[in-house]
Amino acid sequence: MDQSALWAQLERVLDPELDESIVRLGFVQRLEQDGSAVRVVLRLPTYWCSPNFAYLMADGVRRVLTELPGIEAVRVELEEHFASEEISSGVTSGRSFRELFPTEAQEELDELRCRFLVKGYASRLLVLVQALRSAGASDDELVESSLGQLEHTGDLAWLVLDDRRRGPVRGRMVERYLVRRAELGLPMLPESPLLLLADGQPITRERFNEELRHLRTTVINLRASTALCEALLQSRQQWWQSERKEVLP
């Protein structure tokens, strides 16, 4: 099989906290295929990255790859993590997080995952609002528009008003918003409001600026964390490089 199909699938696995693909974040160290068996090596920004998130990512890798026809066994190895062994062997054998950490894991991971889906949604919503605003949409237009007024063409999208349209904005941005909105089970009908908060409430004109400020705080947190994780992962590579030097003549 062409490895690009495998990479494309891996692209779909997100760091739940950073709401970004593990491929883009550089967490995938190795991808090897041998017939119907695949081996993926993951390395996270720190040795201490929370095991629940580590599990979600490792398990996500297993799930998306086994979706592919012809792939029967997926071995996921989490490198240099304090719970490497539990997570690697647990995920490869398809065990749940609670089975792996029976005394410590109390909350279901779904709940945690959901909390971060909501934060990611906030980020995607804000990005959309900011893009449409800088493409000329007024705050009134944004709160009054419905989903059906979004129009995609190729990689571009517009907000269509009665007599004109606002845009273009990047299609991927709109796509990310819509995908997550559907994942959260929010209304997706053409007549549903364009802008919905994660609890399903529309953003009113009166609360527009305040809601935006809330969204911004969530987003700056997410971006700062992403910047930190990327920098940590980068400096983390030094330990392997120096170890390799010691091994090589």
Partner: peptide, 12 residues
Amino acid sequence: GPTVYPLSKDAF
């Protein structure tokens, strides 16, 4: 601050 272990019961 930055994550050091805490499991799902009180993570984040």
